[in-house]
Design a binder for these strands. Structure first.
Length: 500
RNA sequence: GGGCCUCUAGCUCAGUUGGUUAGAGCAUCGGACUUUUAAUCCGAGGGUCAAGGGUUCGAUCCCCUUGGGGCCUACCA
């Protein structure tokens, strides 16, 4: 530390809460007595879930003759005169009771336990595995050591933390709320399941740049940063798409990436500025084959997390992700719901009139944006089952191949689950000449003030000019996938969401 | 971005139509207790009522500004 650094202001008693001061004093006392407050190693022989699994069905008031040494965080303390009880919790939420009795540990050790051990501490105990008179699986402690002293108190275990504290201090949330731990495991299981499904189908996982010279692959506002080494503006990626397509050109024919995207846009219950995204591309596939793949990925993940295609959401509703999912046409479903025939030939004026009548506002309206907004207005909320909405207008989809038989439409689907867009899939555009035209059209939108329009990416076009195989491609929000399987809000699916 | 609501003890929350000393449960401190399960019983301490400014004899309460959070709304996954 340098001489002219402003010294840390010393905390006076008034600035440390009473509870923290008391615990700091206990920490000091442990060290003074030569009982380390933060020992480097402990003679651990077992863990709580393993002991529970082995002795969980012990009768009340039984002994085993088996001695174990294990550690856990104290989540309840019941000190009586000569026999103290503590509930130790392990990382998976399982608990075991420790009993500290005068007869077993002696007067001095019992007093030290009562004086120095607080709720929230990690402690090590060793002793015989027994069952209390009430039948609680317990360790009759012969020896105990502090494993790590908590100098701040645990929040009380009997009220839920408010949402702000949960998100800001997720570690506390994880300690006191079973569901918070379950969410972490659900996410990990989902990720493992996706990778396992991909591996079984010979897909290769790659990592592509997050810092990009030119952002592309989606319509969104980027975060901008600066490289000192190159003295240039760089963008945090909004999508990996254009790099994964370069991989396709290079012959990596079944490729996927699971990683973070960054979009400088609104944050709410279904949007976070950084979010995990899966993108997958399959050479010689199309939007139908990639829809099959998407359905399988999600159904496998549901099976891994919930043990069934029927998942139960946080609010108790059951939702069936099983079976073959509906595939409906955007134009047909819109026409049916609106009671008017709407086709790729319907004029902007007619669509605009309908939007005005319905009170649907469309920014920088063109045929495609109007159709999509009207579709959301008329059809979206009526979808109760997982549904692929197929065949989008060409204007809003600059990276998609034109439909094989319907003019004015592209081979794109959006997958709707639980009222939100969970994934999107394409028959990928691989004609470099048409791709260049689409970029030029986007550039024109950009010039008109559409901040989300894509930019012309010469380097990507050059890759396409070397011929990308025909391919189906798909993108899916990982946080949303968790939301679809668990029914949680996005801030619950992300372990540490961005907070100000 | 716009609108509405909110911030009180370590945690979760009451409350004050503006008036002496701001409350509860858990937690903490002292005492009792060898089978507790949010242990129980007796006693005690703990607050810049988000921050700053204003109105007032007097503000935690009313007004303004700033900050944090939530809900609705618009845009994006």
């Amino acid at each position: 530390m340098s001489e002219n650094t402003t010294p840390e202001p010393e905390l006076t008693d008034a600035e440390v809460s009473e509870q923290k001061a008391v615990r700091l004093a206990k920490r000091d006392r442990l060290n003074e007595l030569g009982l380390e407050a933060y020992p480097v190693a402990l003679p651990i022989t077992d863990n709580i879930p393993a002991v529970r699994a082995r002795f969980g069905d012990l009768e009340a008031d039984a002994t085993t003759g088996v001695t174990v040494g294990l550690a856990g965080r104290i989540v309840h303390l019941r000190n009586t005169g000569k026999l103290c009880f503590a509930s130790l919790q392990s990382g998976d939420g399982s608990r075991i009771q420790a009993m500290v009795s005068l007869a077993e540990v002696g007067e001095e050790n019992l007093e030290l336990w009562k004086d120095l051990v607080d709720l929230g501490d990690h402690v090590f105990v060793s002793g015989e595995v027994i069952s209390s008179r009430r039948g609680e699986l317990s360790i009759m402690v012969r020896e105990w050591k502090m494993a790590s002293k908590a100098v701040l108190p645990l929040p009380n275990m009997h009220n839920e933390l408010n949402e702000e504290t949960r998100v800001r201090s997720r570690y506390l949330d994880l300690i006191v709320r079973e569901q918070a731990r379950a969410n972490v495991f659900a996410r990990a299981k989902t990720m493992a399941s996706l990778r396992s499904t991909f591996t079984s189908l010979d897909f290769i996982e790659v990592e592509t740049p997050m810092l990009q010279v030119m952002h592309g692959g989606a319509s969104a506002r980027p975060f901008v940063t600066h490289s000192n080494a190159f003295d240039m503006e760089l963008f945090l990626r909004i999508a990996p798409e254009l790099y994964l397509k370069r991989a396709l050109v290079g012959g990596i024919e079944r490729v996927y990436e699971i990683n973070r995207n960054f979009r400088n846009e609104g944050a709410d219950s279904t949007h976070s500025p950084e979010f995990a995204m899966l993108e997958a591309y399959e050479a010689y596939g199309d939007y139908n084959s990639i829809a099959d793949l998407t359905q399988k990925l999600i159904q496998d993940a549901a099976l891994a997390v919930a043990g069934s295609h029927v998942v139960t959401w946080a609010d108790g509703t059951e939702f069936d992700l099983g079976g073959e999912w509906d595939r409906i046409s955007m134009y047909h479903s819109l026409s049916d719901a609106a009671g008017v025939q709407i086709t790729p030939e319907t004029s902007v004026a007619d669509l605009q009139a309908m939007a005005n009548k319905e009170g649907v506002e469309v920014h920088l309206a063109n045929h495609g944006k109007l159709v999509e907004e009207l579709w959301e207005h008329f059809v979206k909320d009526g979808l109760t089952r997982p549904t692929f909405v197929m065949d989008f207008p060409v204007e809003t989809s600059p990276l998609v191949k034109e439909h094989r038989s319907i003019p004015g439409v592209v081979e794109k689907w959006d997958l709707y689950v639980r009222g939100f867009e969970l994934a999107t899939g394409y028959s990928e555009l691989n004609d470099p000449v048409i791709q260049r035209e689409r970029f030029v059209q986007q550039a024109a939108l950009s010039a008109k003030g559409d901040v989300e329009a894509m930019h012309l990416d010469e380097d990507f076009l050059k890759a396409l000019e070397h011929a990308m195989p025909p391919a189906g491609g798909m993108g899916m929000g990982m946080d949303r996938l968790l939301m679809a399987i668990t029914g949680l809000g996005i801030r619950e699916t992300i372990l540490f969401p961005l907070v100000k």
